[in-house]
Design a protein around this nucleic acid. Structure first.
Lengths: 246, 246
DNA sequence: GTGACTTTGTGCGCGTGTTCACAAAGGCTT
DNA sequence: AAGCCTTTGTGAACACGCGCACAAAGTCAC
């Protein structure tokens, strides 16, 4: 029974690899940059350089969308912008709600990258009465009591969670129950959601920790400079231990 | 010549896969949560659930750090916290400078996740005279003129770039020239850096676009509901085209 | 001390993603 | 119109990561 566990998503869908999807927005940004500079056509080599990827990878990525290049010439910038936008679903508007208007929520509310790509912020919500009613980026902060109301009224399909970690799962449950099927989570917790709901996570602290790892590696590794062997300090012998018997 | 192009990084290093490194901070957070609740030992199954991963993957990840579990029992929480912290380089302090004190920079300056993991913010810098001198999160914003000075004086090794896109590459060049070897970039541009410098990128807009793609897929795909065939609209026939000859 | 039980650590097969290298295809020159 | 040159699109090899499934290893009960 259950020969394979591929029930979590259609997986094959129409067949664009996840890794490719993650790069399409990068290509799109590079292309709009070229567009603004008046460039009409671009080769895979040039575009790949602008996007910071290998040119063969770029071509294979684009080939998943169809054959939109001209051999010997390259890709027409405007055409490619349209095709990628369409594939990503940016030719239609997406309605977003931002929950949690702390420092981060405020930054998100004022972020220009949302509106410019077809994302419309339908509401800023917070549970703190001291914040509710404030005017942020041209919008009035509303109380989270109205969450379900706002989601239904504006047809919100994407929720951005910028609450403290302790509130995130509760908010997530509510937005999912209200019909939201995509969540962008900035709270430092692992959200659990039912099948069919997509969650993406952005975690500032994790990125820094990854950098710290590589930084340490460059400096000689955790054992490189310190006179400790790998696998040093068995339990009960070092200063960090408190609850272990001696 | 150049039989393989693996000069960009030591790659093998001491051999912890990149995917594992990216998950260690997640495990660490789950572990400190358990620690605060007074849990002394945890099985791979429990910890994996808390971190949102497969238990076999968790065990394999931890096995790269060494054999720190006890069969039949599990892992000692406190010991594991220490080992992961050490591997990630969090047992030492990292000095960070935040460049760009707009909405996002402000949010970062006030973000608790930095200080709690051994990241010390040595300076907030901005090029705007209207912002320089302001007090943010207990620190006085300084002018970017002093960038090199501050990096040298405080021994900054990680730069966080939260400037507008147009300023990011310039700032990046300066911090790298001043000796910084790790950069966390929030600006929506592809930074180019010399070999030996690590760049990690956080892009809010890209995450949203990826969500939009999946959301559209759930709703029937770009061609699912619309009556367009895949490969529709050859050049010169649709309304978006302006520069193509008819 | 012995046996049953629990949980780790890992060998192995599979799928995904990346890169090289080249044939196919189109434009441009003469 | 023919051949050269540029660039795409892709086949094939390779590298990487994931997850199953199981043997090894340790604990706990009696």
């Amino acid at each position: 029974m259950t020969p394979r566990q591929n029930r979590h998503r259609d997986r094959a869908g129409r067949g664009i690899p996840e890794a490719t999807v993650a790069r399409l927005p990068v290509y799109l940004r590079a292309l709009t940059g070229l567009q603004e500079r008046g460039v009409a056509t671009v080769s895979s080599e040039e575009l790949a350089a602008a996007a910071g990827v290998n040119s063969a990878k770029l071509r294979k990525d684009l080939s998943h969308l169809g054959s939109y290049g001209t051999r010997g010439v390259g890709y027409e910038v405007e055409y490619l912008v349209y095709q990628i936008s369409r594939e990503l679903g940016l030719t239609q508007d997406w309605v977003v709600a931002i929950i949690g208007v702390g420092n981060l929520g405020r930054a998100l509310a004022g972020y220009g990258g949302f509106a410019s790509r077809g994302f419309r912020v339908a509401g800023l919500l917070d549970a703190d009465d001291a914040i509710v009613g404030q005017e942020i980026a041209g919008m009035t902060v509303q109380h989270t009591d109205r969450l379900e109301d706002i989601i239904a009224t504006h047809g919100v399909s994407i929720a951005v969670i910028a609450t403290p970690a302790s509130a995130a799962q509760g908010v997530c449950d509510r937005v999912v129950a209200a019909g939201v099927t995509s969540v962008l989570n900035f709270a430092p917790v692992v959200l659990s959601v039912p099948d069919g709901v997509d969650v993406r996570k952005v975690d500032l602290s994790i990125e820094l920790q990854i950098l710290a790892f590589h930084e340490q590696r460059k400096a000689g590794g955790p054992d490189g400079l310190a006179p400790l062997a790998a696998g040093d300090a068995p339990p009960g012998t070092s200063q960090y231990v408190e609850t272990v018997e001696a």
